[in-house]
């Protein structure tokens, strides 16, 4: 195992992030605050509590998920797309590193950023709403698992994309709608029955609900199902990444 290579990639990727650290911290703080001002206070004050949880507190896990999904994907996809685009990927391809080490370095760095972001949002939210975390271990587990899974997903997009547009398409066209429709801001039991059924095909529903359960012990779907679906998506991404390296898809001629 070439640990030094993993460390080199990880350190290099995080260094890029540190250079824009202020921006990286400020922007989630601002956007979270805005969400709480609009949804938490302005609208939330007119909403009744959901399963005994105030609306402001109810949206905290969903907001975190929304940010983690988009950030994981964009960080990881840019992380691998940029060297492909500039051509510096040649060095990774010619280095004595295995696929596992490359992925661990890039995905690890992207997931680290997402986890930090999640913590920043959590801390910012505390300023606006009081909340308690019922199962902190599970919160951490879901946070890490989701960050890693969607960083893997972003990595795949970064390899697949051959232009900046493609890089943006999946997050904008797929992830954002799925997250908004995935029960981040509402309980799916508030939907008409037919939509409750359709929603169950949205994988984000399981992520958000599992995560929310770890906070408040409430969930629209069973926690086991949530965890199962998240793990399933994780393994699907892992399988695709494995295939990419085995075949050299879009990496090697």
């Amino acid at each position: 195992m070439n640990f030094l290579a993993i460390r080199a990639i990880y350190r290099f990727e995080l260094a890029r992030w540190f250079r824009t650290l202020v921006q990286s911290i400020i922007s989630p703080v601002i956007s979270t605050s805005l969400y709480f001002v609009v949804f938490g206070s302005a609208i939330g004050s007119r909403m009744s509590a959901i399963d005994g949880v105030s609306y402001g507190a109810f949206i905290v896990p969903g907001l975190m998920m929304l940010a983690i999904l988009t950030e994981s994907i964009s960080n990881a996809s840019f992380g691998i797309y940029i060297p492909k685009w500039t051509g510096t990927i040649y060095q990774v391809l010619s280095a004595p590193v295995s696929a596992f080490e490359v992925v661990t370095g890039y995905v690890g760095a992207a997931a680290t950023k997402s986890i930090c972001l999640g913590v920043i949002i959590l801390a910012t939210a505390r300023v606006f709403v009081p909340y308690e975390i019922a199962h902190p271990i599970w919160t951490i587990a879901f946070l890490v698992l989701t960050s890693v899974t969607f960083s893997l997903f972003g990595f795949i997009i970064g390899i697949w994309a051959d232009g900046f547009e493609k890089l943006q398409i999946v997050p904008i066209l797929v992830i954002t709608p799925l997250t908004f429709l995935g029960g981040s801001f509402y309980s799916i039991s508030m939907l008409p029955p037919i939509w409750q059924k359709i929603t169950l095909f949205n994988p984000v529903v399981y992520l958000v609900n599992g995560f929310r359960w770890s906070f408040y012990g409430i969930s629209d779907v069973s926690v086991g199902t949530s965890l199962g679906m998240t793990l399933l998506f994780f393994f699907v991404c892992l399988g695709i990444v494995w295939w990419i390296f085995r075949t050299g898809y879009k990496l090697k001629q």
Partner: peptide
């Protein structure tokens, strides 16, 4: 390997990029 095409990490410093290369090769 020094490839034919110029390909560099535009936004990085010289030091960071050579340090990265060294680490990458274990």
């Amino acid at each position: 390997l020094v490839p034919q095409e110029l390909a560099t990490d535009t936004f990085e410093t010289v030091w960071a990029t050579v340090q990265f290369s060294r680490g990458l090769f274990g």
